[in-house]
């Protein structure tokens, strides 16, 4: 894990803007839209859907809550109740940089 970047100092879930704002340790900032997070949900169901090319069952991208998972990840709950996705810091950073697919391929 990149010791310079992670963990973040502050994670703000802005419900009105539908956005997750992260201030990383070194001061870098990421703004990630809920739709991006939903698209790149890395839970086994969502991944399987992507593999077989089936669209998401629900398109809800509104985020309801976010909580810390252990020492290195964030769990996001969407308004349709989907909360299976756990986003480790490096993955969140990659999503913010638009490199989510590359991260998953790695």
């Amino acid at each position: 894990m990149n010791e310079v970047l992670y963990p973040p100092i502050l994670v703000t879930l802005d419900k009105a803007a539908g956005e997750l704002k992260i201030v990383w340790k070194g001061g870098e900032k990421s703004h990630i839209a809920g739709s991006e997070l939903r698209r790149y949900c890395a839970c086994s169901n969502c991944r399987a859907r992507k593999v077989v090319g089936v669209a998401l069952v629900t398109e809800s991208t509104e985020m309801r809550s976010a909580r810390l998972m252990g020492n290195n990840a964030l769990q996001i709950e969407f308004s349709d109740g989907h909360d299976r996705g756990i986003y480790p810091w490096p993955y969140l950073f990659a999503i913010g940089e638009g490199l989510a697919q590359e991260y998953l391929d790695e």
């Binding site: 963990p7 100092i9 502050l10 879930l13 802005d14 419900k15 009105a16 810390l68 964030l74």
Partner: peptide, 13 residues
């Protein structure tokens, strides 16, 4: 150790 990140949930600005 660095502190655990603070998590805020805001409804509007």
């Amino acid at each position: 150790g660095t502190a655990a990140p603070e998590i805020q949930i805001v409804d509007s600005l």
